[in-house]
Design a binder for these strands. Structure first.
Length: 796
RNA sequence: GCCCGAGUGGCGGAAUUGGCAUACGCGCACGACUUAAAAUCGUGUGGAGAAAUCCAUGUGGGUUCAAGUCCCACCUCGGGCACCA
């Protein structure tokens, strides 16, 4: 069969079938003489349809992967599905379909769509996090963390989404609202599982330095961790009386505060404690306005986080009457207030207020008519010594809340026994399978739907064999995705989460491509898992992703975020039907800077489509144009080598738009040539192949090549052939371009100057009546010569 | 409020890091082919001016022989954090 017309759909079908049959993208764990290169895109969750955003993530990333493969690396580019979790579950519930059925139907549909992109994904390594063979190891990792004190259960106020009926991690609360459904989050006292990510705060901070990541992302993590160095100081309570009950050794007769500004302590005129602060219960007998205080505490407990934030300008609070603290620096008594502008979970939950130096304290002081003293600043170190204060470090980062009162997740492998208490499921009993229940709807009472499944709950205690109950909460889906990159190294392993040798040969990930919305979620959690697994001796590296790139967001043609209600959604399937996969891939690369994204231009794609057609036509004309064996023109040769250099360098830097522009320039030049060698045309096709793999593979085979173009080495350029012999010397008069002429590379300053002064265009400025152009008689003040670039004559 | 990032033709965007601003593409205009249209090909395309030339990289200042690029102030947009003491 000989194809004469360019029919993208036909070519795509042909080569996608061929690639599948030959298994060209199946990755071996090692190839002799080649270095492994782990190239990863963030795996999608099975939401339903493949969005243009997925394309923008995967297609340009595939250009990079193919380029790496052709550059001599053994490239692994795996794909899978982040199948558990709220998004899939909510979508399923909305349609009245069981989450499992819905999820697997979507995976099937989306796999087909992903395959249509023609990426070099290795499907033999596909993973699905909802598969028991996968989540067995998610549970196993949970147990490792649990056994080493990095996972714990506690009852405390947590972010509760009233619509999703589950608690959420701090990272999943955006502006006081649930990141999934935008409903205002409330605080709810509930038993919850947490990972002790705070133990790794410092390591997570330090590790950022060595990473080839966008600076902005590193900064976001740094700010999220929020390290601040300060001091703990004790403010004695005057006339402190221990409560009547038997004396608790933890009861303190002082108030400990945290400050980063101990130098301002002389200006401290009152103290403030958070409504949740423990000291209140010990002071009860001394507080004369206890009813008022407790009323205030009740009130602030009822507030949502969002309401607390809204009180931005209006500070509230109540003084603890009958109790005073003593400022240890001045030995003066100061009042104590309870106010919700102080956060219980940060520092000690208590502050020394210095209204003269702190804006928030100033506002509060003004409202309650408290003294504002502009005291002199004291030297920090001296003050610490004098007061016997302790230097300390605080972090904004809080422990990661991972339990969800939802059905569609990996069960937490813990058993509760009346006799033995909390008992981890023995590793040999993993996985704890998620039962296929009929009643999977979330409940209001703060319990997982699994709590209704007697069959699931009832079990035996692994320790004593007595009757016991299973934990019914499931894990946050971010737990599943915090280690998936390890599994790709050995996706079928049944006796380990992945073979150590295989992990060593592939990890850390060499290039990770995905959205920046995960800057403090997935990317932080994965770093935590990696560090914990390393400390527990399971892996040998500290950081999961050596290099990271974010794609931008594609907006609708109207410049607005794409949404069905706005009707500005661009459907990639439709584009593929109209323009072909190669054109879609290529236009995504061409439309602008990769990390920037931007509005979709419906007519812009015609440009790359035309380009591909021209490449095709050039081949048709080749037989006429090329009498075989002719030398190409000097100028084409230079351009060809320059293009090889530019395209390679641009792909390496994810500057796909300028790489394509260089290819267009090369094509435009080739079209103008009277004769064209087959080998030179083949070079163009090779340079094009990472962007438009289907047409390139077809043209390559039409050039009578038997192997795949992707088994070709990336072309090398000859640095000698890039060097030109002449250049265009720019002549400026007072910094403005007035002339230019061809001059040999390396021309000396004197020679360039002489030639320049003889130019007619220059004489017009320098040959003034009665004066001569020379630096001596002051027409010419100065001559600036930039070798191989320009000459600037400064005249008066 | 604080911390990042960005503002370049009608539009998406280039610019070897201080050296010809507007590459490449879209769009538009004119021409060729056609009975005609589409497609295709060719030419032109920042603004003003007859021209010399002048003016243009968010605004205003500065440094420099030379600024889109460096410095200062401001404006607008995007992102992050948000009572973290």
């Amino acid at each position: 069969m000989k194809m004469t017309e360019y029919n993208p759909q036909k070519i795509e079908r042909k080569w996608q079938r061929q690639w599948k049959e030959t298994g060209i993208y199946k990755t071996k764990d090692s190839v002799k003489g080649k270095k492994n290169f782990y190239h990863l895109v963030m795996f999608p969750y099975p939401s339903g349809d493949l969005h243009i955003g997925h394309w923008y993530n995967f297609a340009p990333a595939d250009v990079y992967a193919r380029f790496k493969k052709m550059s001599g690396f053994n490239v692994m580019s795996p794909i899978g599905f982040d199948a558990f979790g709220l998004p899939a579950e909510n979508a399923a519930i909305k349609r009245g379909i069981h989450p499992e059925k819905w999820t697997y139907a979507n995976i099937k549909a989306m796999s087909k769509q992903i395959e249509s992109m023609g990426n070099m994904f290795d499907w033999s390594r596909e993973i699905i996090t909802a598969d028991p063979n996968y989540y067995k190891w998610t549970q196993w990792i949970f147990l490792q963390l649990y056994k080493n004190g990095l996972a714990y259960k506690k009852k405390a106020p947590a972010n509760w989404c009233p619509k999703c009926h589950t608690v959420l991690a701090n990272e999943q609360v955006v502006d006081g609202k649930c990141e999934r459904c935008d409903v205002i989050v409330v605080q709810r006292d509930i038993e919850q599982w947490l990972f002790r990510i705070t133990k790794y705060a410092d390591k997570l901070l330090e590790g950022l330095d060595g990473l080839d990541w966008p600076e902005k992302t590193k900064l976001m993590q740094k700010n999220w961790i929020g390290k601040s160095e300060g001091t703990l100081i004790q403010f004695p309570i005057s006339n402190f009386q221990f409560p009547n009950k038997s004396q608790n050794p933890n009861d303190q007769n002082f108030l400990e505060v945290f400050t980063t500004r101990i130098d301002t302590i002389l200006g401290c005129t009152y103290c403030v404690i958070a409504p949740e602060h423990e000291i209140i219960s010990n002071l009860k007998s001394q507080i004369s306005n206890l009813d008022e205080v407790e009323g205030y505490i009740e009130q602030s407990k009822k507030k949502t986080d969002l309401q607390r934030m809204e009180t931005d300008k209006q500070k509230t609070g109540v003084e603890l009457k009958g109790v005073k603290a003593i400022n240890p620096a001045t030995n003066k008594e100061v009042p104590i207030f309870v106010s919700d502008y102080v956060l219980a979970h940060y520092g000690t939950g208590a502050i020394m207020a210095v209204p003269a130096y702190d804006e928030r304290d100033f506002e509060f002081a003004k409202k309650f008519n408290l003294p504002i003293i502009k005291a002199p600043l004291a030297p920090k170190d001296e003050m610490i010594k004098k007061l016997g204060a302790k230097k300390t470090i605080n972090y904004k980062l809080r422990d990661w809340l991972i339990s969800r009162q939802r059905y569609w997740g990996a069960p937490i492998p813990i058993i509760f026994c009346d006799k033995c208490g909390e008992v981890p499921v023995p590793e040999k009993d993993l996985p704890v399978k998620l039962p296929n229940v009929k009643n999977y709807l979330p409940t209001e009472e703060g319990k997982s739907p699994l709590a209704h499944s007697e069959k699931f709950i009832k079990t035996k205690c692994p320790k004593c064999g007595g009757p016991a109950k299973r934990e019914t909460d499931t894990m946050d889906t971010f737990v599943c995705s915090s280690w998936y990159f390890l599994r790709y190294a050995d996706p079928k392993s049944s006796n380990k989460f992945a073979d150590a040798k295989k992990i060593k040969s592939w990890l850390p990930v060499n290039m990770y491509v995905g959205g920046s919305e995960h800057a403090v979620l997935h990317l932080l959690y994965s770093r935590f898992f990696t560090k914990a697994l390393k400390d527990l001796g399971h892996i040998e590296f500290n950081e999961p992703f050596s290099a990271l790139t974010h794609q931008g967001i594609i907006l609708g043609p109207d410049g607005q975020k794409m949404s069905k209600s706005r009707g500005n959604v661009i459907d990639p399937d439709e584009l593929v039907k109209n323009f072909g996969v190669d054109a879609v891939r290529m236009y995504l690369c061409f439309m602008g800077e990769y990390s920037q994204g931007g509005p979709w231009n419906p007519t812009g794609i015609m440009g790359v489509k035309r380009f591909l057609e021209k490449v095709w036509k050039l081949k048709t004309n080749l037989d006429i144009k090329c009498p075989s064996g002719r030398l190409m023109s000097k100028s084409l040769e230079t351009l060809l080598h320059k293009t090889i250099k530019k395209v390679g360098e641009d792909i390496k830097n994810f500057k796909f738009n300028t790489a394509i522009s260089a290819l267009m320039i090369l094509l435009n030049q080739m079209e103008k040539e009277k004769e064209l060698r087959v080998t030179d045309y083949a070079l163009l096709v090779t340079l094009l192949s990472p962007f438009a793999p289907h047409i390139a593979e077809e043209l390559w085979s039409q050039l009578k090549n038997k192997n795949s173009i992707f088994e070709q080495p990336w072309p090398k350029y000859d640095p000698k052939k890039i060097k030109e012999e002449t250049f265009e010397l720019v002549v400026q008069i007072n910094g403005k371009t007035r002339d230019r002429f061809e001059a040999p590379i390396g021309i000396a300053e004197n020679e360039a100057k002489d030639l320049t002064l003889k130019r007619e265009n220059v004489k017009r400025y320098t040959d003034l009546p009665g004066r001569q152009a020379s630096a001596k008689n002051q027409i010419i003040q100065k001559v600036i010569f930039v070798p191989n670039k320009l000459i600037n004559i400064v005249i008066k």
